[in-house]
Structures are given as C-alpha cells and as structure tokens.
C-alpha cells in the first residue's frame, strides 16, 4: 500500500476545526464547564503553537544525578545499547539518551519505589505474586551493574565495556537466564527491569531525558502529542505521516 505524505498540519486551521468540534479551548489551556461554553464556536483566539520545538544548544540535562561513578554509567550505557542498538533505522539507546533517562529515573521517586507497598515481612513468593524484593530499584541497578562487571571479568577476563558486542550479548543472555549471581535477587529480574527501562527511555516524552529529538517516535512513525485528529484522518485508508510533537510543544 502506498503511503501518503501529509505535511505538518496547518496548526491554525486544525485548531479552528478542533475548537469548532469541542468548543472548549483557549491557547494551550483547556477549559471545562462554564468558562469553556462562553467561547463562541468559531473563536479565533488560539495562538500559533510551536511544532518543531527543537531548541539547539547545550543539553544541560545530560549530567548524572544518580550515578556517582562514571564507569557504572558507561557500563549501563553499553548494556542498553545492546538491548536497543543503533542501526539503519536510526539511533540506539545511547543516541536517544536512554542512559540519562535511567539515571534521572533512579534519582527520582521511581528509584526509591515511592508509590510501592514497602512494609514487611518480605518473603520470596510465586512468580505470579510479583515484586517481593526488599531492594529498591536504585539498589537493584547498583547490584546488577556490579554483577555484570564481575561476570564479565570472571568469564572473559575483561571489563564489560572492553568486550566485543557479541560477548556483551552473552553476558546479557546469562543475566536473562538467571546465570549471573546477584545478592538478593534473580538476575532475570534485573534484566527485565533493565529491558523495560531501556524501552521507556527510547519512547517516553523527551521531557524525561530520552527519546532525543523525538527520534524514537520518528523511527516508529508515532506522532507523539497530537491534540486532535479529524474525521478524515480517523477514516483514512492510507497511512498518514504526521510530524511528531512533544509535551514541550503544547506547553509553550
């Protein structure tokens, strides 16, 4: 099937359509109830929205707020790159900023399992009973990275970051198959967290430090943050390429 390249939506007309359809917005702010209904259906107060939003300059958020040892961060970076490697489609985990995404997540409320139930006693349960570890995510990462390094040294007599890509894969496969010793947990448990975090970093809004310049979304042909689709777009038999937008674009 052929693909139709539809240019970036004309924001002015699309916003007018959407105001007509919903009757409930002014600028980037959505209004509910009484205030929203005061606006006429053909209101033209909506300002332009910046779509591209690519501000060139230094990436001030690319520094470490969790890891204290650069070597740990390097190891993490290379492990995520093996999980989601650079290829002809585009950047891999490192190019997308995934290691920074993980660093920032570990420094925040997810890293200390802030919304998890944390009371004891802690017991090993059945697999279907889920996460029962005493360890918090940031500790699991610390121990997991240490274990990967140790396993590399023992198996290959080299640091993980010195290994060939395929050897690094062997270490990750061992991790996935519970063949790496990590105190307090199965290594597959860490591997699954690492894999999930990598995917998150590739595709979460760029707000979080990964998915650099929305390249994860672009590779996937995912349009990101779109406020409205028309009836024609909904019913389209052709694939519609939409230039992605991010949360930042709706916030300016």
């Amino acid at each position: 099937m052929s693909e139709k390249n539809v240019p970036i939506l004309d924001k002015r007309s699309s916003r007018r359509t959407f105001i007509k359809n919903s009757g409930l917005t002014v600028g980037g702010v959505v209004l509910g109830g009484a205030l929203g209904s005061l606006l006429g259906k053909d209101s033209e107060v909506a300002p332009q929205v910046q779509v591209q939003g690519q501000v060139q300059g230094q990436q001030h958020d690319q520094a470490l707020e969790y890891f204290t040892n650069r070597a740990d961060f390097q190891l993490l970076s290379q492990a995520t790159e093996r999980i989601f490697p650079e290829d002809e489609n585009g950047p891999g985990a490192i190019g997308l900023g995934v290691p920074y995404y993980i660093d920032h997540q570990l420094a925040g409320k997810w890293g200390i399992n802030a919304k998890d139930y944390r009371y004891g006693p802690f017991y090993d349960g059945e697999r279907v009973q889920g996460y029962q570890s005493q360890l918090k995510y940031h500790q699991i990462y610390d121990l997991g990275i240490e274990a990967i390094e140790k396993h590399s040294q023992v198996t290959f007599d080299k640091r993980f970051i010195e290994l060939e890509g395929e050897q690094q894969d062997e270490v990750l496969v061992a991790l996935e198959n519970d063949e790496v010793n990590i105190p307090g947990l199965k290594s597959s448990f860490f591997f699954e967290i690492l894999r999930k975090s990598t995917i998150e970093g590739a595709y979460a809004d760029p707000l979080y430090g990964g998915n650099k310049d929305m390249q994860g979304w672009k590779m996937k042909e995912y349009p990101g943050v779109q406020m409205s689709y028309s009836a024609e777009q909904v019913a389209s038999k052709e694939f519609i390429k939409v230039q992605p937008a991010s949360l930042h674009d709706t916030h300016s």
Binding site: L24, V30, L31, G32, G33, D205, L207, G224, L247, T250
Partner: peptide
C-alpha cells in the same frame, strides 16, 4: 477536573507510573 489534564499526553507518567 478537566483543567488538570492539559499535560496528560504523557504515557510514562500516567500509563506506566
């Protein structure tokens, strides 16, 4: 209410976390 959801197109924050 509705006014609290202007930043809701955030899969990580709402759907994953």
């Amino acid at each position: 209410g509705t006014e609290n959801f202007s930043m809701k197109h955030d899969e990580l924050r709402y759907a994953i976390r």
